[in-house]
Structures are given as C-alpha cells and as structure tokens.
C-alpha cells in the first residue's frame, strides 16, 4: 500500500478532474430528470388522455431495463441510426431518461397522496383544476416527495459511475487509471474515492433532512 504515491499531486488532481465530470453529469441529469419526471408525473396524475397511457408505457419500459443497457444503447446504438452525441451528452441523456422514469413515479405517488377532500374543497370554491394542482396539490405533494427524491438523486450520483463503460472520464474511470499505475495504489485510491462519494452523497442526505424537518 503506497499512500504517498497514490496521493501524489498529479493523481489527486486527476481524481478531482474525474469528480468534476461526475458532478457536472450528475447535476445536469438531476435537473433535467427532475423537470422531465415532474412533467410525466403530473401527466400521469392528471390522467391526460392519450399522453398518460403513452407515459405509462415509457415509465414501465425504462424502469424495467438496466441503466447499463440504456447507456450502451445511447452511446453505441443511436449513432448507427445517425443520432450522434458526445460522451458527456450521452451519459447525461441516458441518466436523464432513466431517472425521469423513476422520478415520474415518485411525483405521481406524491401527488396522489394528497387528501382528496382538499381537492374537493378547492374545486368547490371555484378554483380551476390547474389552480388546485398548483396551489393545493403540488406544494404538499412536493414536500412529501423530498425524501424519496433525494434517495433517487443519491442513486443517480452513484450511477454516474456506470458511465465508466463508455469511458466517460468521471471519478470511477479516473480511479481505475490511477490504480493502473501500480498495484500498490489500489487500496489507497479506492479508499479515497469511497470517501469522496460518501461525502458528496452524505451532504445530499443532510440537505434532505433539513427540507424534511421544514415540512409539516
């Protein structure tokens, strides 16, 4: 075990470069999948004709496929039919589609958990169905969604490491390269990478707990 060698300035910088890509990909995928997941979740919740069944099929299809398959598909299959994108874009696209399907279910469940009586109260006071969704259902539903959403985001951040298979230069990928420089680096490098993943995700958990304690 060569801690000093493994943690040389060049190696540390290389690992941090990997972390940077991990965070960029995770952040972009979190934002995009949240937006997409909310849209799909609301469509499913409000049972929009035609769209809702289509989204049901989409969600079920994606949920029941491994993310790794999706990453391979976007990176290697899509270019065959003329859809080409860069490494980072491909990773973000795969994660966004996969996580959006998960988030859509969280959103739908969260909205459905809001008491029907309040919806009746809002509607009977003359609020439109959209106003009811916006002022009554969404604010309460969103708060209830915080814990499962954060769990999902933590999964997403960890799942970025799967993009190692398409050689995305993220944290896990760069760790493998550092390890490749010498077998004595294996344990020190993996320990450091573990600490990094843990720290980032644990911070997400803390934010989640804070948001939860604010909800009613």
């Amino acid at each position: 075990m060569d801690f000093a060698g493994a943690y040389s300035p060049e190696n540390l910088k290389f690992l941090l470069d990997g972390l940077y890509i991990t965070l960029i990909v995770a952040f972009a995928a979190i934002v995009l999948s949240f937006i997409l997941g909310c849209v799909i979740g609301v469509i499913r919740y409000t049972k929009v004709p035609v769209l809702s069944p289509i989204m049901f099929v989409f969600v079920e299809l994606i949920r029941n496929l491994p993310l790794l398959l999706l990453i391979f598909f976007i990176r290697f299959a899509l270019p065959e039919v003329g859809i080409k994108m860069g490494l980072i874009t491909a990773a973000i696209a795969a994660l966004t589609i996969f996580e959006a399907a998960m988030i859509a279910e969280i959103v739908r469940g969260g909205l459905a958990s809001v008491d029907k009586g309040q919806i009746e109260a809002a509607r009977s006071s003359g609020l439109s169905s959209f106003q009811t969704l916006w002022h009554i259902v969404l604010p309460q539903g969103l708060r209830r969604m915080v814990p499962p959403l954060v769990s999902q985001f933590i999964s997403l951040l960890k799942d970025t490491s799967l993009a190692v298979v398409i050689s995305l230069p993220e944290l896990m990928h760069n760790a493998q390269i550092v390890i490749g420089h010498g077998y004595t680096y294996t344990i020190p490098t993996l320990i450091l990478v573990a600490v990094i993943y843990f720290t980032v995700n644990f911070m997400l958990s803390i934010v989640s707990r804070r948001l939860e304690s604010k909800s009613i």
């Binding site: 008491d115 009586g117 309040q118 009746e120 109260a121 809002a122 509607r123 009977s124 006071s125 003359g126 009554i136 309460q140 009613i216």
Partner: peptide
Amino acid sequence: RKDIGMVFQHFNLYP
C-alpha cells in the same frame, strides 16, 4: 361554484 360555499364533514382545510 364561486356562488356556492361548501363545508365538509372533515373540514378539508389546506394544512
């Protein structure tokens, strides 16, 4: 509906 107020058994206030 805006001319008809309604009061429910379980109040249905917005928590």
